[in-house]
């Protein structure tokens, strides 16, 4: 079975991940492999535990049992500093953008650079890096605005720029297109694609958006009942007869 083998190509491997909140068993043995350079889409109903899974993955939530291996390192074995260092390689685009309200766009982008100095050395002037990241999302003009002055789509892009500034090898997108109009969604999807081409990243993309999934995915996992219910390419999954799977593609 493919399920239990650890592929050496995998940058992220999750095995038998379990997580519950009291009586609410959210994840019941979830498995996942993310291969280098691939775009893996995870779909699931609202409240099925996608965000929880991705937070366990990056160590924001502690999982009850199971293993998470990122670039060959088991996150349970890492101390705080090592985990921080590992996180410089992972960009995380939060569901609600999570821009720091009290800071300008520039300060938001500079923020991750403050502590992740190991990767870049001491940065005297972050401006070029900030502008580069902003240009790659096409929002260089917004550099001195505050988050409250931005639209939802702009926030998403600024948040993406903030994850890009560390030049991560892996990017985790939590619902990047939710709440945006179809045109803006399409722009975001294109942006994600261009980023992937430019920075050669591997990505996990959580989404409900079927169009987005079709456009960007190399492979998909359906998260149902706390497990990886089905896996395959978009085309494979669309063909499946299971009613629970069919429900996603109506």
């Amino acid at each position: 079975m493919k399920k239990n083998t650890i592929n050496s190509n995998a940058v992220i491997t999750i095995r038998d991940l379990k997580k519950s909140y009291g009586d609410n068993y959210v994840l019941n043995g979830f498995n996942l492999d993310l291969y280098e350079g691939e775009n893996l889409v995870i779909m699931g109903k609202s409240g099925s535990g996608k965000s929880v899974m991705i937070k366990c993955l990056i160590g924001l939530e502690e999982h009850d049992s199971g293993t998470v291996i990122i670039m060959g390192k088991n996150i349970d074995d890492l101390d705080h500093d090592e985990l921080d260092e590992l996180r410089t390689e992972i960009g995380f685009l939060f569901q609600g953008s999570a821009l720091y309200d009290s800071m300008s766009v520039r300060e938001n982008l500079e923020f991750p650079l403050r502590r992740h100095t190991k990767k870049f050395g001491e940065i005297n002037d972050a401006s070029p890096l900030v502008m580069e990241a902003l240009e790659s999302v096409g929002l260089a003009r917004a550099v001195d605005l505050m988050p409250s002055e931005l639209s939802g789509g702009m926030k998403r892009r600024i948040a993406l720029a903030r994850t890009l500034i560390l030049k991560p090898q892996i990017i985790l997108y939590d619902e990047p297109t939710t709440g945006l109009d179809p045109i803006t969604s399409k722009e975001i999807v294109l942006l994600m694609k261009s980023v992937q081409e430019k920075y050669k990243t591997s990505s996990i993309i959580i989404t409900h958006d079927v169009d987005c999934a079709r456009a960007i995915s190399n492979r998909m996992i359906l998260l149902v009942d706390g497990i990886n219910y089905a896996e395959g390419t978009y085309e494979e999954l669309v063909e499946m007869e299971d009613p629970k799977i069919k429900a996603f593609f109506k």
């Binding site: 937070k55 990056i58 996180r87 939060f94 821009l99 309200d101 923020f111 992740h116």
Partner: peptide, 20 residues
């Protein structure tokens, strides 16, 4: 209110993952 909204909008989590 400030920290509460930062917690709710995951800004605190974002800080954590960006190494601060």
């Amino acid at each position: 209110a400030e920290l509460g909204s930062m917690r709710v909008t995951e800004q605190i989590d974002a800080m954590e993952v960006s190494g601060t």
